[in-house]
Design a protein around this nucleic acid. Sequence first.
DNA 1: ACCTGAACACCGTTCAAGT
DNA 2: ACCTGAACACCGTTCAAGT
Lengths: 237, 237
Amino acid sequence: MTQLAEAARRVPLNRDRVLQAAVTLADEVGLESLSMRRLAQELGVVPMALYKHVANKEELLDGMVDTIVGEIDPPVPDAPWKTMVRLRVLSARVALLRHPWARPVIETRTNTTPAVLEYMDSFVGMFLAGGFSEDLTHHVMHALGSRMWGFTQEVFDDSAGKGAKDQPRITAEAQAAMARHMEESYPNLFRIAVAAAHDEESVVGNGCDDQFEFEFALDLLLDGFERLHQRNWTSHG
Amino acid sequence: MTQLAEAARRVPLNRDRVLQAAVTLADEVGLESLSMRRLAQELGVVPMALYKHVANKEELLDGMVDTIVGEIDPPVPDAPWKTMVRLRVLSARVALLRHPWARPVIETRTNTTPAVLEYMDSFVGMFLAGGFSEDLTHHVMHALGSRMWGFTQEVFDDSAGKGAKDQPRITAEAQAAMARHMEESYPNLFRIAVAAAHDEESVVGNGCDDQFEFEFALDLLLDGFERLHQRNWTSHG
DNA sequence: ACCTGAACACCGTTCAAGT
DNA sequence: ACCTGAACACCGTTCAAGT
């Protein structure tokens, strides 16, 4: 009886519910805490029950990526290729930024699911529709690379700035000592850090506008693509 | 006595030996099989012994990256910035390709070790020595991003081609059916795949020269950097 | 003071035993 | 035929007990 009631209350598990729960759980507790066991527990289900809807953890992660792909806006219609590509990449960026776990997961995928292939196909379509040759489109897609997903690995670690909230306030002397050490050991990094800090009134190593940097590199590439296209560039001679 | 002999035979463990062994083990068995326990076993040591030389697994991975950085050639002297940057990136690429586990490891590092900072500093130095402003150098470094390591995520999966060796020979009909499905579902991808297969006599989806693609994107960026530099580009107005 | 075996708190996945 | 508890073969790391 109680069991019956529970069974009725419990929405029957399906692939979509599993994936949705996985996305939400990863959003909340982070990728490193997303385990099959924990996910099962969250769904009020025995771990083994998940394996009915997902072959293994890898397939779960594949499915989670597909869910994110579904959150990316479709291409804006009736725009020149450059605008279309640009906007779609930036839309992907918005979706990806909502789910911090997505970047590392995408980077480690080895299977390309139909949803991901479809996403890539739409980019290829934008270039071809813009008059790009198949040859140029091919290489341009490679050059775009994972930037297609709206991210690039941030090599300057501003996670230091991110964690700064709960870091104890640092003494002025300690800060000066750190700066001195940096100037000695990494003189060139020091120079550009100082220059950046001067422009925006911000602390050393914390003055990077990720969005600006992303668009800077994206536009550099798009301009490069445009130039090659105008020149009728080909890879063979 | 036997114990004494063993102790004498056994080179005393130190950080370097641990890191070297970890690199070798990862090369041999892959990243997913590199565990503290397995590494200890390989060194003929109880797992806990590793924790004397490395705080935890994260620090082990940091150290492994440092080892790779040490394998990258120093900058070639007396060359224009573009050549210097280009050659150093390609040298990094050679080192990284020797260690397939390095890309994912670098991508997931959150700590920047001194060795990595030094590596970054040398790139900044090349741009500054080439007459780039601090401002432009800053953004250019961001745009270079993880390409500085000589890799980019390959979004076209040619791991299919890699695993093809042990895949059973596929019938002509199956291949045709696959092509038909691809043409229907991903018409644009199909177009560029066919064009690429036509150029080089290669199978669909297997005809990408990674090295060419890498240099294509790298040069596109370097040319873009050069153009901005010549224009005295600045980020503020 | 140093070293380490055993233990803790987890994993993903298999499988045989139950309904 | 379906479902699942227990078990397997691992993890990284802690800690107290031994030398």
